[in-house]
């Protein structure tokens, strides 16, 4: 190859691009400690820890947090079951309509959220379904399927078919093969997919505004605070919680799917 070193211009552009992606989020942390609650004055006039206590004691934060956790947990479970089933079918055989199925799974996140939201809203109106926790879950599970599916299908692809045949040759039936061979190999990928789905559901707001009615999830609570701010630093404290709730699963998912070498038969 002509040269294996990147030009300084490229290095600067790539570094600046990454800095552009990361620096803004840090400001959220800074503003959680500011003493100024009426504006976003920079630099903050003083630093304080009191907003964490204030946020803890605000009664209007806990119900949305609880609702978000419930929705994310149930949606993730549904998505994990459905996503794994599709991934297993896709890995098992090539069948007619395979491409259409993969497109159908991808569509809910490839099309703008406003379409999914508005579509669900129309459907609830046409069939007269009142808003409830379940209308939120219906939407969330739908766009979470693809996340679990992507993780599972990648692992299926690396999993060598020979191990399943070997299991059958050794006298295991399909269910034993599933329990002893398939699941242990898929486990970490499913866990990773589930964590990403949880993170996605936990802070989803675009679809949720259409399917929640009068209910308030944590992101919807944040959205109303953004439009009509009250104690601004409290919003920052909640934002830090949201960042932590999504950051940790994402990091865990990364480490769970990082070493592909440990999958059985992957060397083939």
């Amino acid at each position: 190859m002509p040269s294996e070193r990147a030009s300084p211009g490229l290095k600067i552009a790539a570094g600046a691009g990454l800095a552009f992606l990361h620096l803004p989020i840090l400001l959220i942390f800074l503003y959680a400690f500011t003493t100024e609650e009426k504006s976003y004055q920079f630099p903050p006039p003083g630093l304080t820890l009191k907003w964490f206590a204030v946020a803890w004691n605000r009664a209007d934060i806990w119900p949305p947090l609880w609702l978000s956790l419930q929705v994310a947990a149930v949606s993730t479970l549904i998505a994990m079951v459905l996503g794994t089933l599709v991934a297993a079918a896709m890995a098992q055989s090539r069948f007619f309509g395979r491409e259409q199925v993969s497109l159908l799974i991808l569509l809910p996140i490839a099309l703008p959220g406003v379409i999914t939201g508005m579509a669900l809203r129309s459907a609830f109106s046409v069939v007269d379904i009142p808003f409830s926790v379940w209308t939120i879950i219906l939407g969330h599970a739908t766009f979470c399927i693809v996340i679990v599916y992507n993780n599972a299908v990648a692992r299926f692809r690396r999993l060598h078919g020979g191990v399943l045949e070997a299991s059958a040759d050794l006298g295991a039936n399909g269910f034993q093969t599933f329990g002893y061979v398939l699941l242990p190999n898929l486990g970490s990928a499913l866990l990773a997919g589930g964590m990403l789905a949880f993170a996605l559901s936990f802070d989803e707001v675009i679809v949720t505004t259409f399917t929640a009615g009068q209910q308030s999830t944590l992101p919807i609570w944040m959205l109303t605070e953004l439009v009509r701010p009250r104690q601004r630093p409290v919003t920052n404290v909640v934002a830090i919680v949201v960042v932590a709730m999504t950051f940790l699963p994402i990091l865990a998912a990364y480490y769970l799917t990082r070493d592909g070498e440990h999958t059985a038969g992957a060397g083939k």
């Binding site: 992606l21 990361h22 803004p24 989020i25 400001l27 959220i28 503003y31 504006s39 976003y40 004055q41 920079f42 990403l196 993170a199 996605l200 802070d203 989803e204 707001v205 675009i206 992101p219 944040m222 959205l223 953004l226 919003t235 920052n236 934002a239 949201v242 960042v243 999504t246 950051f247 994402i250 990091l251 990364y254």
Partner: peptide, 23 residues
């Protein structure tokens, strides 16, 4: 991956802080 996956609203909020008149 991290910025891509981190909370959408938090990211938008960060920019409200950055772009504010007194920001």
């Amino acid at each position: 991956m991290l910025p891509l996956w981190s909370s959408y609203l938090v990211k938008v909020y960060a920019w409200k802080l950055i772009l504010a008149r007194e920001g």
